[in-house]
Design a binder for these strands. Sequence first.
DNA 1: CAGGTCATGTAAAGCGTTACATGATTTT
DNA 2: AAAATCATGTAACGCTTTACATGACCTG
Lengths: 188, 188
Amino acid sequence: MALPEPLPAAPDLTPTGRVILGMVASGVRTGYDIKQLVDKSTRHFWAASYGQIYPELKRLEDQGLVRGRPEPTGGRPRMVYELTSAGELALDAWLASDQEPSYEVRDEGMLKLFFSDQADPALRLANIVAMRERQQRKLAQLRALEPMADEMPPGKAMTLSLGIRLTNSFIEWCEEAERRLTTTRPEE
Amino acid sequence: MALPEPLPAAPDLTPTGRVILGMVASGVRTGYDIKQLVDKSTRHFWAASYGQIYPELKRLEDQGLVRGRPEPTGGRPRMVYELTSAGELALDAWLASDQEPSYEVRDEGMLKLFFSDQADPALRLANIVAMRERQQRKLAQLRALEPMADEMPPGKAMTLSLGIRLTNSFIEWCEEAERRLTTTRPEE
DNA sequence: CAGGTCATGTAAAGCGTTACATGATTTT
DNA sequence: AAAATCATGTAACGCTTTACATGACCTG
């Protein structure tokens, strides 16, 4: 007996735990602020809802990765979080991990396009237009952040630049497809 | 009384219900075949697992949107499905719907990049390399389908072309970023 | 004082993956 | 004869969204 005690082995961060820990490490202090920042900056590649954030903050505290203390604004309750040293370790471990990073896309527009041979071909064009408009709205949101890119730490500026690049490509593809569909079709 | 009977109102298709219905409409007949085709063609923008497919096929049958009949291969049980006319209607309704199509991305590589200012900057490069490699594997899979694009119905060929375009842009961005990180960094 | 924002949380329901379990047929 | 493929399914678990509920503070 008396086997060498197995290392406390950083419990794997849950998906939402990852954003939260990173945000808290970046100095974002409340659940509310995390949600705001996620919606402004990461939601195009990583979303989170209040229903996840608040319970997860508690779980992270139970695991000793963050520490919260009440810091009300007048009579309004407010919990302010910061990383513990175990939290820093867990964050570093995640950032340094070799694990194949997860990657998922779910695009209903593309699925409709895929099945558009089963239906009225006019719907195809409408669908592509809808996809483009959606991407254009997304692009506008990203472009609104661009002026601040200079003051951003490099990592944040880079995700912004990648987001813009991908969104632009998407829009260009849609425009080309729309052109092809509107110029060749009607002449037949 | 005797209000005009409310239309039977096509029950909304669940997310997985959408792929399945589309696949069955395209002539894919068994749960197993649906999974194969999804993995080969749509998984880059819409995945599905057996654990969803088989129960969902039953639910769709309960709703009268597909009809299944046993068609064993020798002693091996096998269920073959086809669309009912209600199923065709539901598929058309979905394809024609104005509803903002859902769109979600969850990219752990980008999230790591976003938080890469909190850690050793060398990790940033490693992370981008990992992202690029992942996209390159994806691109290889898509390119493998390209030769068949001519015989594909237009909708399928278009999703392939869009997938390739986006994946290429992603890879190009990574290559540029890698170049910037490796040429400017070491000289400081 | 009304409307917006700040702020926290829970409950239920839905969605999805993973792992397990089984077995026949086909290919090498 | 082994390995791969065809084929179906369930159970447990985990993740996420949505909707609800509440209330204080700030701005016009």
